[in-house]
Amino acid sequence: MTTTAADTSAADGDQPTDACAAQPHGPHGYAKQKDQHLKRLRRIEGQIRGLQRMVDEDVYCIDILTQVSASTKALQSFALQLLEEHLRHCVASAAVQSANQDADAGGEEIEAKVAEATAAIARLLRT
């Protein structure tokens, strides 16, 4: 099961305050390319299944490690694409919304989105 920003906020006791996080199945930044993302994830899933097959068939360690590296890079690339879409969609939406609100409330929303994106980047760097 995957954890979304909305799940994390709810688990922390915070309620999502923006349209991006409030709609678990709504128009997220990746919505326009959802089919492409699913295709890419299926390809990565195939790579992982290939790893299982390699271990089952007692393939040479270095060959398996090479495939692990390729799979890791594929996931990292996917994560960066998703992060970029989050920044373009959710963070940009927060900025537009802040322009329509008072400066303090809008600034807090932007700060929250930047902090959320920064935490996601930190998690990506730890892996």
Rank of each mutant, 00 (worst) to 15 (best):
L65E: 12
E45C: 07
V59G: 03
A70F: 05
D56S: 14
A74Y: 06
R43W: 02
E57H: 13
L75N: 02
R88E: 15
L82C: 06
E84I: 05
R53K: 08
G50E: 05
H86A: 08
L75Y: 01
L80S: 06
K73V: 11
Q52G: 13
L65D: 15
E84Q: 09
D56M: 14
A70S: 08
R53Y: 06
D63H: 10
R88I: 02
S69F: 07
S71M: 09
C61H: 08
F78V: 00
Y60T: 15
I62G: 14
E85S: 14
L87S: 07
L51K: 00
Q76T: 05
I44K: 00
G46D: 02
V68H: 00
H89A: 15
D56T: 11
A79Q: 07
G46S: 09
E57C: 14
A70R: 02
L83M: 08
I62T: 14
A92Q: 10
H86Q: 09
R53F: 04
S69H: 12
L51W: 02
V55N: 12
I64T: 11
Q52A: 13
V59D: 08
Q47C: 04
R49E: 15
G50R: 01
V55K: 06
H89Y: 13
E57M: 10
Q47G: 08
L82V: 08
V91C: 06
R49Q: 11
T72Q: 07
Y60H: 14
S69Q: 13
F78Y: 04
V55M: 13
E45W: 05
I62C: 09
V68Q: 04
D56K: 09
I64G: 10
V55L: 15
R53C: 10
R53A: 08
I62S: 14
E85K: 08
S69Y: 05
R49W: 06
R88G: 14
L51R: 00
R43H: 08
A79I: 05
D56L: 11
C61T: 13
S71P: 04
T66Q: 14
L87Q: 08
E84M: 09
R88L: 11
I44P: 00
S69C: 11
V59H: 08
S77K: 01
D58H: 05
V59R: 06
Q52H: 08
Y60C: 15
Q67N: 12
M54C: 06
R53H: 07
T66C: 12
V91T: 13
A92G: 02
L83R: 04
A74L: 03
A79P: 03
A74E: 05
S77V: 04
H89L: 14
Q67T: 11
Q52S: 10
L82H: 03
I64Y: 06
L82T: 07
L83T: 04
G46Y: 00
F78P: 00
L87D: 11
M54H: 06
R49P: 03
I62P: 09
D63K: 10
I48H: 01
D56I: 05
L83V: 01
M54K: 03
R49G: 03
R53P: 01
R43P: 00
S71G: 13
V55R: 09
D63L: 13
M54R: 04
Q47K: 00
G50K: 00
H86G: 02
L80F: 04
G50M: 01
Q47D: 12
S69L: 09
D63S: 15
G50P: 05
I44T: 04
L80M: 11
R49M: 11
A70M: 12
R88V: 12
I64D: 12
R88D: 14
D58G: 11
D63T: 15
